[in-house]
C-alpha cells in the first residue's frame, strides 16, 4: 500500500509539473485557477497542522505534541530556520514525556 501511494503520488505530482510545461501560458490569465491554486497550500497545510497536532486516529487528544507545536510557533516568530523549528518541537515534546508531565 505504501509503495502504491509513493509511486502513484509521484506520477501525479510529476504530471502536474509536466502539464504546466506543455499547456499554453494563457491559462495563467484565468483568475479562478490562479486564486484556487494559491489558496490550496494554505488550506491543506493548516488542516495538516491541526490534525497532526490534535488527532490520534479519529479521536481528538491534547498531549505533548501541542506543547511541541507551540514551541515551534515561538521559534518561527524568532525567525528560526526550518530545521531548528522542527528540532525545537521534537525536543520540547520529548522532554515533557521524559519528565512524566505529559503523554
Amino acid at each position: 500500500m505504501i509503495w502504491a501511494a509513493v509511486l502513484i503520488g509521484a506520477a501525479g505530482t510529476y504530471s502536474e509539473k509536466l502539464l504546466g510545461h506543455l499547456l499554453p501560458a494563457a491559462l495563467l490569465d484565468n483568475t479562478t485557477v490562479r486564486r484556487i491554486t494559491g489558496y490550496l497550500p494554505i488550506c491543506l497545510l493548516s488542516a495538516l497542522v491541526a490534525v497532526q497536532t490534535f488527532a490520534t486516529g479519529t479521536t481528538l487528544v491534547i498531549d505533548a505534541r501541542v506543547a511541541g507545536v507551540a514551541a515551534a510557533v515561538i521559534a518561527l516568530m524568532l525567525r528560526a530556520p526550518f530545521l531548528v523549528v522542527v528540532l525545537v518541537a521534537a525536543i520540547v515534546a520529548a522532554l515533557l514525556r521524559a519528565s512524566g508531565l505529559s503523554e
Partner: peptide, 26 residues
Amino acid sequence: AGGGLVAAVATAVLLGARNSLYALSL
C-alpha cells in the same frame, strides 16, 4: 496518521498543483 492510499495521494497532488502554475509561467 492512518489515512488511506486515496487520501494520501489526493492531498499530495492537491498540494502539488501550484507547480503547474510555476511551469506555466516558466
